[in-house]
Design a protein around this nucleic acid. Structure first.
Lengths: 132, 132
DNA sequence: ATTGACCTTCCAGTGGCTGGAATGCCCATA
DNA sequence: TATGGGCATTCCAGCCACTGGAAGGTCAAT
């Protein structure tokens, strides 16, 4: 399998696959005569794993840790769970931040008539308000 | 006011203030004899404006737009409102993404016993599951 | 005169890609 | 056999919004 086929099979762009290789995550089984990357099924599985973990918001560092645990048949499932729970906590923190931003913006938008006139509570608050 | 005082007054690190200057957002009124940046009240106000807008999740490009609207006394408040509403929509999109991640992770964590044993549904799903 | 806090510039790195240039490979068709 | 098109390669650069650190200059107080 060339990189393009792997890209189609994993949903990851070729560029990203090369990037993952450059940081040591997944490397091709071999190179063809013409120096093309050639991949086998297990690399495709690994890349799919990476793609799914990324979609759950894990950093590449954590993905590497998860991959290591995946490969380690003697791992403790508690270690995996701990990573997942840490990620949930980070998501919660981020959700709280975004919700706070949203609330504030919503208040501002409500108070701004939003027409041709120049007076605008949004700018006023940004300029001097306390924005809670 | 030197940059350190401005930093204290705005909550922005000196490095960030210099960075904002480098991208043309806010420049000091003048330089002292010893080449120190010197700021007046209006720069402090501008930086506070920037800091608040950033806290609401606006990009620096949008902050620049908001600043331009702020300075333009003939602006239409609708233009400001449109920026704020676009930002709310982006926040909503991001919130949906994060919530979806959270839901999936929560399911996975529930199904993983998380002890010393190696079998782990989290890894299984990352490896081959459909993760909804 | 010396200390120490502050300031200066410049370069480099973060994360996770993404774009583009210049070049090379592979295969099918005329 | 030439040629064309679709792949692939490497390398450099850029994105965003900072942040860290080195090497040095300034300023006020002791």
């Amino acid at each position: 399998m060339n990189i393009g086929a792997v890209a189609r099979a994993t949903g990851l762009p070729p560029k990203t696959i090369r990037y993952y290789e450059s940081i040591g995550l997944v490397k091709p089984t071999e190179r063809s005569a013409g120096n093309y990357r050639r991949y086998g099924e297990s690399e495709v599985m690994t890349l799919r794993f990476v793609e799914r973990a990324r979609r759950l918001g894990f950093t590449l560092k954590e993905v590497a840790d998860l991959l290591a645990l995946w490969r380690d048949k003697t791992r403790a499932s508690g270690d995996v769970r701990a990573l997942a729970q840490a990620q949930i906590r980070r998501l919660d923190a981020r959700l709280r931040e975004l919700r706070a931003m949203r609330r504030t913006l919503e208040h501002l938008v409500e108070r701004c008539h939003g027409d041709e006139r120049p007076d605008c509570p949004i700018l006023d608050e940004l300029a001097g308000g306390k924005l809670s």
